[in-house]
Amino acid sequence: MRANYGYKDGSGEFFITIDTDACPRCAERPCVAACPAGVLEIVEDDYDDQVAAVREADRRRLKYACAPCKPVSDPPPLACVSGCPAGAIVHSW
């Protein structure tokens, strides 16, 4: 499942897309620890799979929660994106 967490408002589109089909095959779940803001967590989805998700409390404030990882100049690779061995995490902005 491609889960798009985030929002669109007057200031832009801020979505983190997670392809959760990759999660059940991932034993370590390194994405959770990789995010310095603690935005990600492992939850049981509606079909009883353990998958990565954006925390409920962060879904409406991603622009701000993720801002420290997105400096204006010379942005490094995003920790969550490079932390996922399956390459299943993508940011829209």
Partner: peptide
């Protein structure tokens, strides 16, 4: 069964 979703509940 859901294959993909996008929800906007901020606005």
């Amino acid at each position: 069964k859901v294959r993909a979703f996008l929800m906007n509940d901020k606005c």
